Simulated assay, not measured.
Amino acid sequence: MPYYTPRGGLPPQTDLTTDRATFTQAYAVLPARTMSDITTSYLPHWRETRLWIIARPLTGFAETFSQYIVEVSPGGGSDRPETDRSAEAVLFVVDGALTLTLEGQQHALEAGGYAFLTPGSDWELRNDSDATATFHWVRKSYEEVEGIDRPESFVTSDAAVEPTPMPDTGGVWATTRFVDPADLRHDMHVNIVTFQPGGAITFPETHVMEHGLYVLQGKAVYLLNTDWVEVQAGDYMWLRAYCPQACYAGGPEPFRYLLYKDVNRHPGLRPPFR
């Protein structure tokens, strides 16, 4: 199954500057072309690794999470990947192969591989192959609740989880859910949403959950607040809470995106109102 993977570089000097990049109070769109060499970052304790930080907590932007696209060269990785012991994470591999060592046990992650890492996990990640590997890293500060245990870490894959069709859609809209929505230990979900060509969200969803959407495959026209925006594989969208959203999936292939949302917790009543 294909997953879009950025390769960096720079657009040629002959390209037009005009693009779909948009930053508003309600949403942002980072087109695939923005993932260039000059927009990469680096992290402490990571070897032979660069990344695109596509969402981060920021006034007027993401409030509950950060998201990276991480490119690990052969021999690269980290023995100290996470510096915040309160951070939970999801890793989703889109290209290449990585070795995840989680609580002393090794797991091979290839394209489509998915790992949930509970806060305070002992984990390492490295690229033992001779080709570059790329993965998404979604991080959130876990919200503890008295009487509810932290969720356990686990490793699975896109291929291992059967998508759940949305009711009354004839199967053209389905969600690959990696955790049970009723499991209140989890305060975030990172799922994969799939629309078959012609599938649609036929009403403007307007809800409390903040979203990060990375388009893995295909194309669509997406409603963001009051604007209809064309999006395609490699584009990233951020939607603040209550930003209306809908979409029409174009062809000829399925439209799929990796979706973050915060769930299962009281809204904060004191700043920073998370």
Rank of each mutant, 00 (worst) to 15 (best):
H211I: 02
W238Q: 07
L213M: 11
Q232M: 02
D227Y: 02
L224P: 02
W238C: 08
A220G: 05
L213S: 05
N225L: 07
H211G: 03
G218R: 01
G218F: 00
V215A: 04
A241T: 12
V231R: 01
G234I: 03
L223A: 07
Y214D: 05
Y222M: 09
M237S: 14
M237T: 12
M237A: 07
L213A: 11
T226A: 04
A241S: 14
V221I: 14
L216M: 14
Y214F: 11
Y214K: 07
Y214C: 09
E230D: 11
A233L: 04
A233K: 05
T226E: 14
V229N: 09
V229K: 07
G234S: 11
G234F: 00
D227C: 02
Q217S: 14
V229F: 02
K219G: 06
Q217M: 09
A233W: 01
A241I: 06
L224W: 00
W228F: 08
W228P: 10
D235G: 11
R240H: 09
N225C: 08
L213Y: 06
N225F: 10
M237H: 01
L239V: 00
L216I: 08
H211E: 13
D235R: 08
Y236E: 10
L224Y: 01
Q232L: 00
A241D: 09
V221Q: 11
G212L: 04
L216A: 05
V229M: 14
M237F: 02
G212W: 00
K219F: 01
V229H: 05
Y214Q: 10
L224I: 10
L213W: 09
L223I: 01
L239G: 03
N225I: 09
L224D: 12
A220W: 04
V229P: 03
D227P: 05
G234E: 08
W238A: 07
V221K: 12
Y214L: 15
V231C: 13
G234C: 07
A220K: 02
W228T: 11
G218D: 12
V221H: 08
G212H: 00
V229I: 14
Y236T: 14
Y214T: 10
L239A: 02
D227V: 14
G218H: 00
D227R: 13
Q232S: 13
G218Q: 01
V231Y: 05
Y236G: 10
L223H: 03
Q217N: 15
A241V: 02
L224M: 09
A241R: 13
V215K: 06
D235M: 11
K219T: 09
L223G: 09
A241L: 04
D235P: 05
R240P: 04
V221D: 14
W238K: 09
Q217L: 06
A233H: 03
